[in-house]
Amino acid sequence: MTFKLIINGKTLKGETTTEAVDAATAEKVLKQYANDNGIDGEWTYDDATKTFTVTE
């Protein structure tokens, strides 16, 4: 399955996707991606669209 991350950061905005077997696995990968890029904020997840959003 494809999961999307929408980034609403102070210095970085955009989106990325990852392939994962489930939402929990995708969340780990996407949170690591955000952490690697210095993004720390509030996370939400929409199961209907398989989209995570992080807002700083």
Rank of each mutant, 00 (worst) to 15 (best):
G38F: 07
E27Y: 15
A20G: 04
I7N: 02
E19D: 10
E42P: 05
M1R: 09
T53I: 08
N35L: 15
I6V: 13
Y45W: 04
Y33T: 03
N35H: 15
V54S: 02
T25P: 02
F52M: 01
A20D: 03
I6S: 04
E56F: 11
K10C: 13
L12W: 15
I6A: 04
G38I: 03
E15V: 11
T44N: 09
T18Q: 05
N37W: 14
I39K: 02
Y33H: 05
T55E: 06
L5E: 01
V29F: 15
A48L: 11
L5C: 05
E19L: 14
A26T: 01
K28P: 04
T51V: 06
I39F: 07
T25Q: 13
Y45C: 01
G41E: 01
T51C: 06
Q32V: 07
Q32L: 09
T2R: 13
T44M: 10
K31M: 09
A20I: 03
K10V: 13
Y45R: 02
A20C: 07
V29E: 07
D46T: 05
E42K: 10
E27H: 10
T18W: 09
T49Q: 07
E27P: 00
A48H: 11
V54L: 11
A48R: 11
E15W: 14
L12A: 08
Y33I: 06
L30Y: 04
A23P: 08
K4S: 06
A20W: 02
N37M: 15
T25R: 08
K28V: 11
K4W: 12
K50S: 06
D40W: 14
L30G: 01
T25W: 07
F52A: 00
T44L: 07
I39W: 08
A24T: 10
I6D: 02
V29N: 10
E19S: 12
N37Q: 13
T11L: 11
E42L: 14
E56V: 14
K4V: 11
D46C: 08
T44A: 10
I7M: 09
E15G: 09
D22I: 03
Y33F: 12
E42G: 05
L5M: 05
D46H: 06
T17R: 09
E27K: 09
E42T: 14
I39H: 04
M1W: 14
D47H: 12
D47G: 08
K13A: 08
A24R: 10
E19G: 06
L30E: 00
I6R: 06
T17V: 09
E27F: 15
D22G: 04
F3G: 01
Y33E: 02
T25M: 12
T16Q: 08
D47T: 08
D40E: 13
K50E: 03
T25V: 09
L12N: 09
G38C: 08
A20N: 04
M1A: 11
G9N: 06
V54W: 02
K13N: 10
T44C: 07
T51Y: 03
T17H: 09
G41M: 02
A24Y: 11
T2W: 13
A23Y: 13
D47R: 08
I7T: 04
E15N: 06
A23G: 04
V54A: 03
T44H: 12
K10L: 15
W43M: 04
N37E: 08
N8M: 14
T53F: 07
K13E: 06
V29S: 08
D40I: 14
I7A: 03
D40G: 08
E15S: 11
A24C: 12
T49N: 08
Y33N: 02
E56Y: 10
E56G: 05
T44S: 12
K13I: 11
G14C: 14
N35C: 12
V54I: 09
T49V: 06
Q32M: 10
D46V: 05
D22P: 01
L5Y: 02
T49G: 05
G9E: 03
M1E: 10
T11R: 08
T2L: 13
G41A: 02
D36Y: 07
A34N: 03
V54T: 03
D40S: 14
T2G: 05
T11I: 12
T11S: 12
K10T: 12
K10D: 08
D36Q: 12
T18E: 04
A23L: 09
T51R: 03
K13Y: 11
T51H: 03
G38P: 01
E27V: 07
K28G: 07
K4A: 05
F3N: 00
V29T: 10
F3L: 01
N8L: 13
E56N: 05
W43I: 03
K31F: 06
N35K: 15
D36M: 11
A26V: 02
F3S: 00
M1V: 12
G14L: 15
E19H: 13
K31A: 05
T44Y: 09
A23M: 13
K10A: 12
T2E: 09
D46L: 04
T49D: 04
Q32H: 06
N8E: 08
L5N: 01
A48S: 10
E15K: 06
A24L: 11
L5T: 01
N8S: 07
I7Y: 12
G38R: 06
A26I: 02
T11C: 14
Y33S: 02
E19C: 12
T25I: 07
N35S: 14
L12S: 09
T25K: 07
A48P: 07
D40Q: 15
E15L: 08
E56W: 12
F52W: 08
I6Y: 06
T44R: 08
F3K: 01
N8K: 12
K50G: 05
Q32D: 07
T11A: 10
Y45A: 01
E56R: 05
D36F: 08
G9V: 14
Y45M: 02
A20K: 03
D40L: 13
T11V: 12
K31G: 04
W43N: 00
E27G: 06
L12V: 12
L12C: 14
G38V: 03
T18C: 14
L30R: 00
T53Q: 06
D36L: 12
T16P: 03
E15Q: 10
A20R: 03
N35E: 14
